Simulated scan of single mutants.
Amino acid sequence: MNLLFLGDVVGRAGRDAVLAHLPELRRRLATDFVVVNGENAAGGFGITEKIARDFFDAGVDCITTGNHVWDQKELVGAIDRETRILRPLNFPEGTPGRGAAVFQAPRGRRVLVANVMGRLFMDPLDDPFAAVGHVLRQVRLGAGAGAGNGVDAVIVDVHAEATSEKMAMGHFCDGRASLVVGTHSHVPTADLQILPGGTAYQSDAGMCGDYDSVIGMKKEVSIARFVRKLPTERMTPAENEATVCGVFVRTDDRTGLGVRAEPVRIGGRLAPHLPEA
């Protein structure tokens, strides 16, 4: 299978870039399944149903989130209706929505997507490793579509601050997932690789946003906060042309494990990189 994961979408600039480039990316890469982290898509804070629908119409199959998932209050009531939006798996029992789901892909194939949030320097949620481990034990990767609990691919979005926690999750899932990819830091890391057990891994996919900024937000406000240590106006997303950042993974049809992993960067300020189909 050909999988595409796009990192945190930040504000209108990020949304516009994803909507503009995704149809061609799907065609060029013959993509079977697309996941986008959308937790900063609405003005930098959360996501709305309308924005989610726009992503789905453009070719997104699943939207993951993170610590800003509830910033747009409407999502609390909507997330149970729109099952293609995931919230972190390790929220307490009884939280609306779900953190993992199996989705149908072309030609009868099945893809498990799990969204989990780290605990280092973030909210003290339930154990992310126990949560992911429980989900992975429920499926058999590479067992073939339609074969009971078999899935053809497993994608894990680790929304976390610390690279050490993300790396540990990658190795924890190695051999049991097609792709483990970090989000939240908004900066693409240079460690994209296939781990020894066959799982594609990157510590952070980077953001889909304007990189003439401080992690997607207007740089003047962020600089003032660091320099003056005084209250400032509310941070808002930078609005110039965005770079779409993510990772492309090709899996082995028999095992479901990664055989190829390449970064995706298109538009905006970062050096472009587009995988060959």
Rank of each mutant, 00 (worst) to 15 (best):
G197N: 07
L192W: 01
S213T: 05
I194E: 10
K50P: 00
G11N: 02
C62G: 06
P237E: 01
R53D: 15
L125V: 09
T163Y: 09
L6M: 14
P263K: 08
E82A: 13
D212S: 06
P23E: 10
F226Y: 04
A205D: 07
D174C: 09
T243K: 09
V156L: 11
A277P: 11
R225M: 05
L125T: 05
Y201P: 04
T243A: 04
A114F: 00
L3N: 00
L112G: 02
F172W: 10
G206T: 09
E82D: 12
G150T: 07
Q193T: 13
R53H: 14
V18L: 12
E161A: 14
F103E: 04
E165V: 10
G256R: 08
A13S: 15
G7F: 11
D252C: 15
L192C: 02
K218R: 14
G258F: 02
D204M: 00
D8P: 05
L75H: 02
N2V: 06
A190C: 07
D152K: 14
T189L: 15
V139H: 13
R254I: 12
G7S: 05
E220H: 07
H273L: 06
D57M: 02
A162H: 04
K218L: 06
A130K: 06
V154R: 01
F5L: 11
S164F: 03
V116H: 00
L86G: 07
G142H: 06
G14M: 12
G246W: 08
V34E: 03
G44Q: 09
L195P: 02
M217H: 01
Y201D: 01
E276M: 05
H134F: 05
G256A: 10
R228T: 15
G133A: 03
